[in-house]
Amino acid sequence: MFTRNITFAFTLACSAIGAAVAADEPQFVTGGVGIEERGQMLASKPDYNVRMTFATRGTGEYRSDVQVEISDTKGATNVNARDAGPLMFVNLEPGRYRVTATAADGQVQRREVQVQAGRTKDLYFYWSEPATIVQ
């Protein structure tokens, strides 16, 4: 268990550092697969001002196959994350942003978000079940 906690903490730190270093992107973390990892993510929730959850409509099954792009009002991409989810937490400067979340099967959802100093935003993205191909 101790090794997993260190591994998870290291993974979170690398994600955050990588995000902050790459093109001055805001700090973010993503994860929450499994009960232990979800608990660790939720413990860090107060440290972020935009918190996103990705799931399947109807079943509530979490999704961790999401491409997330966050752009400012000028169209500049502030965050670009692949295979995000089921939880993703981001620290954004105050302002207006467009969040585009694309599931692995191509379903796209967009949200406009106004970030205010000292306030938090929770965004929920629910997708339909992926289409089943009958042969």
Rank of each mutant, 00 (worst) to 15 (best):
M1I: 09
M1W: 01
F2V: 10
F2A: 06
R4K: 10
R4D: 04
N5A: 07
N5Q: 06
N5M: 08
I6G: 00
I6T: 07
T7P: 02
F10S: 15
T11K: 14
C14P: 01
S15I: 11
S15W: 07
A16E: 15
I17K: 04
A19W: 06
A19V: 03
A19R: 12
A20H: 12
A20E: 05
A22T: 14
A22Y: 12
A23G: 13
D24L: 10
D24C: 07
D24M: 09
E25H: 11
Q27I: 15
F28M: 12
V29R: 06
T30H: 14
T30Y: 06
T30C: 05
T30S: 15
G31I: 06
I35H: 13
E36M: 11
E37K: 12
E37P: 02
R38E: 15
R38H: 13
R38F: 10
Q40K: 15
M41S: 06
A43L: 15
S44K: 15
K45G: 02
N49G: 03
N49H: 08
R51F: 03
F54C: 03
F54A: 01
A55C: 03
A55E: 01
G58V: 02
G58K: 07
T59E: 02
G60S: 05
E61F: 05
Y62D: 06
R63M: 04
S64N: 15
S64E: 09
V68P: 04
E69A: 07
T73Q: 09
T73K: 12
K74Q: 05
G75F: 05
A76W: 01
A76L: 03
A76G: 05
T77V: 15
V79W: 02
N80T: 03
A81N: 02
D83G: 06
G85H: 04
P86I: 01
M88C: 12
F89N: 05
V90K: 03
V90N: 01
N91A: 04
N91R: 11
L92V: 06
L92D: 11
E93Q: 13
P94M: 07
R96W: 05
V99E: 09
T100N: 08
A101T: 03
A103W: 08
G106R: 11
Q107D: 14
V108N: 06
V108M: 14
Q109T: 01
R110D: 10
R110H: 12
R111D: 07
E112Q: 13
V113R: 04
Q114C: 02
Q114A: 15
Q116R: 15
Q116P: 01
A117H: 04
G118D: 13
G118C: 05
R119S: 11
T120L: 08
L123V: 11
Y124G: 10
F125Q: 01
S128T: 09
P130G: 09
T132L: 14
T132M: 08
V134T: 12
